[in-house]
Write a protein that binds this DNA or RNA. Structure first.
Length: 431
DNA sequence: TCTGGGGTCCTAGGACCC
DNA sequence: TCTGGGGTCCTAGGACCC
């Protein structure tokens, strides 16, 4: 059996933990740059605010409905997530952290020790709430896809008390009939439209279609697996990892600028900052990269025709993880992509072709005798930034001007709550 | 004025190799 | 005239997830 533990309205719940007066109030959380709505409390959902709504379009409605608006506060959400995940890891032998607010547990063999599983899940829920303040729902079923589906029903049907255990075929059949085909894990907008056209309405209908048909219509083997999993046949286990954290195959950092930029040095500073950030993530994962993609984007919403973005892929002579080295290539990439008289709104950096640091192959043509020195320097830099806060030490290229509080590419975050759990100055004060 | 960010997997086609 | 078969690697594009 697999369990899916999913935090309810996670970002909104995190804000509520530190401002209990928000309980029962509609809340929305905005994306980077206060661009669009990316999270909502139930109350805000009922009011009709949708995922992805641009803030400037719904600003007045939010105000009129008295909705609490927050900028996203990843320092807070990330830390709360770690607390929830840490607790889960204590309670089950195998945990896969699937996203910031969801985890799969492998419960095979646990029936003997904690039976029945739904009682176990209820205790888990209660304890997570008690320890972190975060409400959750839990679905348990023979496959991950069915556990997802069970979780969805546990959320939707308050009578279930936040837990649904699909332990028999009958229950599975019942659950499949309750869920629309578009709400199945792995069925997005395009596939949902296709399925509707073919007359398939519920998850049960989808579970009943042939493998060949699923394979043909739903993206090959992925579709076939999906249907199998709905029927209860396990096609995917937990993703392997040492500590529940997935090792990424690509690492990226991108941002929409706070304002459109047309000066080369401003864009270069942005790309440099994103490169540094991505390199930190790379080293934290213990990897080095072979392939670096840099892209620059223009406004997609104006009158100008596409293309809206241009990119370049650099094949690095050796796998590297050193910020100073990577910044050199970032500069080359921006130079290559740069078009004078263009106005850019966004940029990004992607690292692919990752391999473990320290076990990188030496290039025949570019020996790197000082690799050890570089690695030590980067380790020091990461340690300083961990200890004293992000960007305490950084590369000069990522700065523009002098003494400016904010770089021109940095976005707005007008309604950011304090980093209660990760910054001493932001500790909650009780008076 | 203002429209997010970070991932995954699969397929198909072309270049190239033996 | 005849015009293989099997494999890899790379890229682009398309779908999906949170």
């Amino acid at each position: 059996m697999f369990a899916l533990v999913d935090c309810n309205n996670f970002y909104a719940s995190c804000e509520r933990v530190f401002q209990p007066r928000l309980e029962g109030q509609p809340i929305v959380v905005l994306s980077n740059n206060d661009g669009c709505i990316i999270a909502r409390s139930n109350e805000a959902k009922v009011l009709g605010f949708r995922m992805g709504d641009p803030y400037f379009q719904v600003k007045h409605d939010l105000l009129a409905s008295n909705v609490c608006v927050f900028s996203s506060n990843y320092a807070l959400y990330g830390d709360m997530s770690r607390r929830v995940m840490w607790y889960l890891a204590q309670q089950a032998p195998e945990v896969e952290i699937y996203s910031i607010d969801e985890a799969f547990l492998d419960l095979h063999g646990m029936e003997k020790y904690v039976a029945p599983l739904d009682t176990f899940a209820r205790t888990l829920r209660t304890n997570i709430k008690k320890r972190t303040g975060i409400p959750t729902c839990i679905g348990i079923a023979p496959t991950k896809t069915l556990a997802k589906l069970a979780n969805r029903l546990a959320k939707k049907m308050p009578d279930l008390g936040g837990v649904l255990y699909l332990d028999t075929d009958e229950k599975c059949q019942w659950a499949l009939a309750q869920v629309g085909v578009g709400d199945v894990w792995g069925i997005g907008r395009q596939y949902a439209a296709k399925l509707a056209a073919a007359g398939l309405v519920t998850a049960a209908d989808l579970a009943g279609c042939s493998d060949a048909w699923a394979r043909k219509q739903l993206g090959g083997v992925v579709g076939a697996r999906l249907v199998q999993e709905l029927r209860g046949r396990v096609c995917q286990g937990l993703a392997p990892s040492e500590d529940g954290t997935l090792a990424r195959q690509s690492i990226s950092c991108s941002r929409t600028f706070g304002q459109p930029l047309s000066a080369f040095n401003d864009v270069l500073a942005a790309v440099g900052a994103f490169t540094s950030r991505a390199a930190e993530k790379l080293r934290r994962q213990g990897d080095a990269t072979h392939l670096m993609t840099v892209y620059l984007s223009k406004n997609r919403y104006g009158l100008e025709p596409p293309p809206y973005s241009c990119s370049t892929v650099l094949t690095l002579p050796v796998a590297m993880s050193d910020t100073t080295q990577l910044l050199r290539y970032a500069r080359m990439a921006v130079k290559k992509l740069w078009q004078a008289n263009s106005v850019y709104t966004k940029a990004g950096v992607i690292f692919d072709g990752l391999e473990p640091l320290g076990q990188t192959q030496l290039s025949l043509f570019e020996p790197a005798p000082d690799t050890g020195k570089r690695e030590r320097l980067m380790a020091e830099l990461d340690a300083l930034n961990r200890r004293f806060g992000k960007n305490t030490v950084r590369m000069a290229t990522t700065l523009v001007g002098r003494g400016k509080a904010r770089a021109p590419w940095e976005g707005k975050a007008q309604w950011c709550s304090p980093a209660y759990t990760t910054r001493l100055e932001d500790l909650l004060q009780v008076s």
